[in-house]
């Protein structure tokens, strides 16, 4: 059972209390951008076998969106952080590198 700690209310929430929201830190492209950039934003996903940054909502709790860094191969959670963050914070990156020295960073 996946357990993520909500960075807002501090609860260690079981996955039945949460809703997954897909890849985090997508850069939004809208009207005026190139077709390629818009296609990439809408559809193309990193979908890595390994470290993944993703959105979650504490839907059966405080209701807020937050972000998590998690390994898709071991389901290990490296940390969670607020949604109002455009890049993964340094503390999260350090936690990942401590456990995955070979990790090459976000593609």
């Amino acid at each position: 059972m996946l357990i993520l700690t909500c960075p807002y209310c501090g609860l260690a929430a079981d996955e039945t209390e949460l809703s997954p929201g897909g890849e985090a830190h997508l850069k939004r492209f809208g009207p005026g951008s190139s077709d390629d950039a818009f296609t990439g934003y809408l559809f193309h996903r990193e979908n890595p076998r390994g470290v993944h940054f993703e959105r979650w909502r504490h839907s059966n709790g405080c209701g807020k969106w937050f972000l998590a860094a998690r390994c898709t191969v071991t389901l290990e959670v490296f940390g969670t952080y607020p949604a109002q963050t455009t890049e993964p914070p340094a503390a999260i990156l350090d936690a990942i590198r401590a456990k995955r020295p070979d990790w090459e960073g976000r593609a």
């Binding site: 890849e23 990439g40 193309h44 996903r45 990193e46 979908n47 593609a107």
Partner: peptide, 15 residues
């Protein structure tokens, strides 16, 4: 997605 990354492109796919 893993093979596409080896090949150097991205896919509209999630696993």
């Amino acid at each position: 997605g893993v093979l596409a990354e080896m090949a150097g492109f991205r896919l509209p796919i999630e696993s």
